[in-house]
Amino acid sequence: MLAYIVRRLLYAIPILIGVNLITFALFFVVNTPDDMARMQLGVKRVTPEAIEKWKVERGYDKPLLINAEATGMATVTDTVFFQKSARMFVGDFGRAEDGRDIAREISARMGPSLAIALPTFILGLFVTVTFALTLAFFRATAFDFWGVVLCVAMMSISGLFYIIGGQYLISKVWRLVPISGFGDGLDAWRFLILPVLIGVVSGIGSSARWYRTIFLEEVGKDYVRTARAKGLPETVVFFRHVLRNALIPILTGIVVVIPLLFMGSLLTESFFGIPGLGSYTIDAINAQDFAVVRSMVFIGSVLYIVGLILTDISYTLVDPRIRFE
């Protein structure tokens, strides 16, 4: 089992290198730094001097891959690739357009992102699994039918509607909680409750339907018939036998997103004015801050890969077949 986990860890290295190369290609090869400068400076201010100045300020004036003018290690290290892409492996993300250190900004913004995303995730998981389990328990009844109809309707509604509608109704019409903003300490809950609620509701439709399918697939298996033939009550059959087995496919789907919770949600954070990584990304996209977007792409991938490894580990916990291999 240990070898299995170590092997998964080792496999992550070439993946990370691949991600790094893709981001490099996307940001520096598709468009040259000159193009980026022209875009950022705007048509009116473009002069060769301005472009050069823009590149020097950001360190984009170096050669892309190999610096023929430098000597020794510097032929490789004194390049855009090494300075801007490879150094992300050690947590050096450079500076944003406003001159702030991106790494510091990221660590400061992870907290607020997590404050929204974690409760949304946990509460959402609880609500959807419970709902799906209830639907599967009452399968082939009117309750199940209308539950599925509700799920399909809910997943057909745009996520934007949940946010805009929720904000309008709860904050503006009923004035229950502030419409947006973020506070520290105990005061924070007033700001958190609405985005968390909306996050949970908007996720119910698709996840509950998916979990229900998984539960129903398990219910049809032979061992469930065996459990019934033992005379076990239906609740025991469900919670002891079905739920455990259904957990395995469900886990693959959810464990992988846990690390990504740090990244927050783009939409929720920008709508509710939460100073997390999601709104940071959106602001960077709108301001065309390439350094920040590049960093977020890399961090997102790292977190995803961590999620993959966590999934592999969680498998060994719930599935004895892997634990004993």
Binding site: I15, G18, V19, I22, T23, L26, F27, L260, M263, L266, T281, I285, V293, R294, M296, V297, G300, S301, Y304, I305, L308
Partner: peptide, 12 residues
Amino acid sequence: LSSIPGVLLIAA
């Protein structure tokens, strides 16, 4: 490719 979160890859 699937390691890069979709929205971010699209954004970039």
